[in-house]
Amino acid sequence: MIVFPGLIFSLITLLTAIWAERKIAAKIQMRFGPYYASKRIGGYFQLIADAIKFGLAEIIVPSNSIREFFILGPILITAFAFLPMAFIPVSQIPSSGSITSPYYRFFFDKFAGISLYQPIITPYSLLFIIAVASVVPILTVMTAWASNNRFSLISAIREGILTVAYDTLIIIALISMGIEYHTLDIASIVKTGVPGIIANPIAAFVFFVALLMGTARFPFDVAEADTELVTGAFTEYSGLLFVLSMAGPYLLTFVYSLVFATVFLGGWLPLMGIPGAILTVIKALIILFFSVFMRSVYGRYRIDQILRGGWKYFFPAALLALIIGMIGGIFL
């Protein structure tokens, strides 16, 4: 089919993101990072080797855990981190002259008046993304509870406290964009031709910080703090379940990066068709790499520092973005 961000694509993105994280952190810390597994492409095969190793490792289920939820947890996290991609338009289908033009009718979005590379056409795509993505922290808490491990429990508490702080920011930032563009459809937002970062820079900033918070990137890594909590909610996991538990947050980062690329960075414009899709993905990858780059710049904040920052500085900033959205909406 013509669903561009498919499963294989997501897998490659995931491996690239982890490779980039290790390589960027190594460069800034005066090291080399992955190197020997194919020197020519910077040790990229190391990640594939790691993936195969974890994929073939034995899955150990602790005897005092809740078995069903323990196994379901990472699977559901990955699934729900993956689902919002169904609502993100990556490009526009030109009415003629492209390989995908025969599908023009099938994916016609009558609300925006254009045909899209978007599996599920809906006028409320922003709302759907927020709704589906906000299930992930609940599943993380469920996973942590099912693990029956003290590190996981502390992680779950932190995740629960943090969720309230960052979900508010994400929702207000996206709703302010919705108010500004008079629509909750991402395609309509892109169609106006004004990137959100120009129309409402504060919303873009708040959304980016909330993206870092929501997907446990540095400096907001408290829920998965590997130096104090092993890996937080995913302490007990091994083998393929560990791969899934690691893939979930990265996929969620990529989903939010795609939202950032489309809503705030103008998406596929000025291109169309497959080049447009590639442009959107490149923009999203830049955001993704930038968010993993943060690991090498920052240390980890304490939970109270994050909450103080979130509620004292970013929440007022988000409200300011809402007001800017209301004022900007008059002109757009």
């Binding site: 460069k27 800034i28 005066m30 090291r31 080399f32 780059f293 943060m294 090498s296 710049v297």
Partner: peptide, 17 residues
């Protein structure tokens, strides 16, 4: 400023390995 310093090291890496 911190992010700028990080980016500077990213563009011009000095490795001591």
């Amino acid at each position: 400023e911190a992010i700028g310093t990080g980016l500077k090291y990213l563009v011009k890496p000095t490795r001591i390995t």
